[in-house]
Amino acid sequence: MDCSSLHRELRPFEDRALLRRLPFNWKHMDRESDGSRHRLRDVSPADAATP
């Protein structure tokens, strides 16, 4: 299955050239190794299928 057919990237908000001129500097952010940040770290439901 071609995964690219399953989503569509929307970029009307920005073009890459402008993004390069306005790079957001993530070094100022407290991020996890994957770039995210979650106050709630755990995902819990042992009873996932039976609420």
Binding site: M1, C3, S5, L6, H7, R8, E9, L10, R11, F13, E14, L19, W26, R31, G35, S36
Partner: peptide, 20 residues
């Protein structure tokens, strides 16, 4: 952070593939 705004297509097929 990518930056990316993606519309995930509706699909009845393989969910694992969809999540990619």
């Amino acid at each position: 952070d990518v930056p990316s705004l993606r519309l995930i297509q509706k699909h009845a097929g393989d969910s694992a593939a969809v999540t990619t």
